[in-house]
Design a protein around this nucleic acid. Sequence first.
DNA 1: CCCTAAAAGGATAAAAAATGTCTTGTTAGG
DNA 2: CCTAACAAGACATTTTTTATCCTTTTAGGG
Lengths: 134, 134
Amino acid sequence: MMELTRKGEYAIRGIVYLAAQPPDRVCLLSDIAAAVDVPATFLAKIFQQFSKIGLVKSYRGTGGGFLLGRVPEKITLLEVVEAVEGPIVPNRCVVGAGECVRDVTCKVHPVWKRVQGQVRDVLAGVTLKELSEV
Amino acid sequence: MMELTRKGEYAIRGIVYLAAQPPDRVCLLSDIAAAVDVPATFLAKIFQQFSKIGLVKSYRGTGGGFLLGRVPEKITLLEVVEAVEGPIVPNRCVVGAGECVRDVTCKVHPVWKRVQGQVRDVLAGVTLKELSEV
DNA sequence: CCCTAAAAGGATAAAAAATGTCTTGTTAGG
DNA sequence: CCTAACAAGACATTTTTTATCCTTTTAGGG
């Protein structure tokens, strides 16, 4: 349970690598993939998702590549994980009110709410800066 | 991410139902399944897992069925979830030392450790008693 | 001793999700 | 206009989830 998928793992590896580069250094996807040992085509999909929400910036054509969308101090692990894995939702019940038929009476509900909160807090408290420092 | 599977959901529903029964009341699997709206064959598998680790006691034959292995105050949600979903492991890295090649240098590792700890703490703090009370 | 009730266990199947790959399109530089 | 690089969508493979079914074991009652 609660297991991060490969996608999430790859996503973290890739963006932490980016964060560890000198600022303004544009990185090729193929280089990143090789460095963090992830299939390049798969990493491409992941970085596309990052790009859409501004976590990374991308440039096409010759001399193109990727760099962080913000300074690493301003990107949290929570953002990275949710970008590729979707929102952190330990139980279906936690998804918006009324989704769960047992909603009103369900005693387990608030427990999952608490789990969700704790996990989010931990992940939100970690930035790419910390993760990329030697 | 972090999503409980149906199996986990069914497991909780089933055992909470048991916990809500008068002590020493032996319940038929078919009755439990109908009451909590879970396929009986699937619930059977789940209760077999419960039975193996003593979370429930089972009796075969006429007049047989299931009841809780311990008083509901002594069974935590953590036990129930881990019984059917396996240990709570947010990231492969968290599994025993050395499983992850990046183990030594991996900065993300301790973060997942913290996540794991928080989740376990929340779930371990809830008992079937609380969940089954009106 | 047999018959029926009930759970245990194993094999199998269908559906969904994860994990990748491939092809084509788009953008930019030289 | 040629090449480099990312974007986007379709497709394929594998694994996991979500069951179902059939046979076996255990137990009670006539």
